[in-house]
Amino acid sequence: MGETVAVTINGETRRVEKGASIAAMVGAIGLDATKVAVERNREIVPRSTLGDVAVAEGDAFEIVHFVGGG
């Protein structure tokens, strides 16, 4: 990995490759992008644009999925 930026994912600080798309970041974590939803700095990132939006220094992400619940 070359130059990196610091971001927060689900409350944890992580370093991701500078210039990477959100889709690339999600994939690098090992997640299936078709089964999650991503919020960046409290704004929903539409799934169709995950590959277009580049990660920036200081971004705060929430990545969620469906779990069992009543």
């Binding site: 944890e12 974590i29 997640l31 969620v64």
Partner: peptide, 29 residues
Amino acid sequence: VTVAVRRVNVSDPSQPVLQDHIDPKKVTY
């Protein structure tokens, strides 16, 4: 079926997920 929305486990993304056992194409989530 009702389902909850929660953070993914970023540290262990290989954990089994609900959709692998209850198919959202067959049952309305």
